[in-house]
């Protein structure tokens, strides 16, 4: 199989979290720090921050003109890593792609992340 293109943690978090077999709380030990990471995905959608970004996104649309797409800002940039990545790629990204997280170029990806998200995750790791 072709060598996979590594994907960021954000891409796998919602596949992993809250999934899988649950071992009863009485017989397991909780893992410190993980809880903060799990909250992250859920609070994003129904937040004032998201509302303001949506408002900005529709506000900046210039609907009367049709050929101004180049002049538009990346409307939702920063709201999601998946969304801000790879506008130029094909319709389906990563067919049969395996996620090579931890493959060595994490540093570069970390730098490319939107600031707000990076800050949240750093807190989560402390």
């Amino acid at each position: 199989m072709e060598r996979p293109r590594p994907s960021g943690l954000a891409d796998v978090i919602d596949i992993i979290l809250d999934k899988g077999l649950v071992i009863d709380a009485y017989v397991r030990v909780s893992l410190i720090g993980i809880e903060i990471l799990t909250i992250d995905a859920r609070i994003v959608i129904a937040s004032v921050d998201t509302y303001l970004r949506f408002a900005e996104a529709v506000g900046r649309l210039n609907i009367a003109e049709t050929d101004d797409s180049k002049g538009l800002p990346e409307l939702l940039e920063g709201m999601t890593e998946g969304g801000s990545r790879s506008k130029t790629k094909g319709a389906v990204e990563g067919v049969k792609e395996k996620l090579g997280i931890g493959d060595g170029d994490e540093e570069e990806r970390e730098r490319a992340k939107p600031r707000a998200r990076r800050r949240r995750r750093d807190e989560g790791e402390e």
């Binding site: 992993i16 809250d18 899988g20 077999l21 649950v22 071992i23 017989v27 909780s30 893992l31």
Partner: peptide, 14 residues
């Protein structure tokens, strides 16, 4: 079968 992420148990015996 994945076990839920973050599961830690007290030891092998457990």
């Amino acid at each position: 079968l994945p076990v839920r992420f973050g599961t830690v148990m007290t030891g092998d015996q457990a």
